[in-house]
């Protein structure tokens, strides 16, 4: 994503002894970075500030790793990551919103209007996270299915093309479109469930 994340990653890897944890971290960073960024942008933060918030969230997570590693009952890494990142993100977002207000009086009203209570940030984060998991799953599936299978799904579900038009466009019979789009969706759903079960 960017260098700072990479730096965090390197320092984390040096501390994480389990290679699966490293993979979990990478996957997590790829999903949660955009989540935090988008929630921040959605709440009226400047892009640079949003980037900073993302950095700080990851840094906070990285800095807490040792205490997690030392716990006997540490449980699943991903569950912990999600919890700690979510808390950090809520903190940062709330803090920054306040800071932005103090710094720039002219935008005070706008900032106030866009400011949310911590609980609202956290539900925004959760919603965005859920979406991102779907997108992540969709990206995975897209890589693993034939292009025309994906296209059948994409055209009909996301672009609102009718089954008939899609069949004509993809030069196949409509029956295939029904099944292809559902196969894709089914696999996305499975991946999402699997992801959620693992955490």
């Amino acid at each position: 994503m960017n260098k700072d994340h990479t730096a965090t990653r390197v320092s984390l890897i040096l501390r994480l002894k389990n290679v699966d944890d490293v993979a979990a971290w990478d996957e997590f960073a790829a999903i949660y970075g955009p989540v935090v960024y988008r929630v921040a942008i959605g709440r009226g933060f400047q892009p640079a500030d949003a980037e900073n918030i993302v950095q700080e969230v990851f840094l906070a997570v990285a800095n807490s790793i040792s205490s997690w590693l030392e716990r006997d009952d540490r449980g699943r890494f991903r569950a912990w990551l999600l919890r700690i990142a979510r808390n950090a993100a809520v903190d940062m977002l709330t803090q920054r919103a306040t800071r932005a207000l103090g710094r720039d009086g002219s935008d005070a009203e706008a900032v106030l209007a866009s400011m949310l209570a911590p609980s609202e940030f956290s539900s925004a984060l959760d919603l965005e996270y859920e979406r991102m998991v779907f997108r992540w799953a969709a990206a995975q599936v897209r890589e693993s299915v034939e292009a025309h299978t994906w296209d059948a799904f994409w055209l009909t579900s996301m672009e609102g093309v009718t089954i008939e038009v899609a069949a004509e466009r993809l030069k196949t019979r409509t029956g295939n479109i029904y099944f292809a789009r559902s196969r894709v969706m089914s696999r996305i759903k499975q991946l999402v469930e699997q992801y959620e079960a693992e955490r």
Partner: peptide, 24 residues
């Protein structure tokens, strides 16, 4: 036709998917 859709995923999941992709 409807059943194929439902067997793949619930209507709620289809909608969640569409939501997730709609505001890129």
């Amino acid at each position: 036709q409807q059943r194929v859709t439902e067997l793949a995923a619930s209507a709620a999941d289809w909608k969640r998917m569409a939501d997730a992709m709609s505001d890129l």
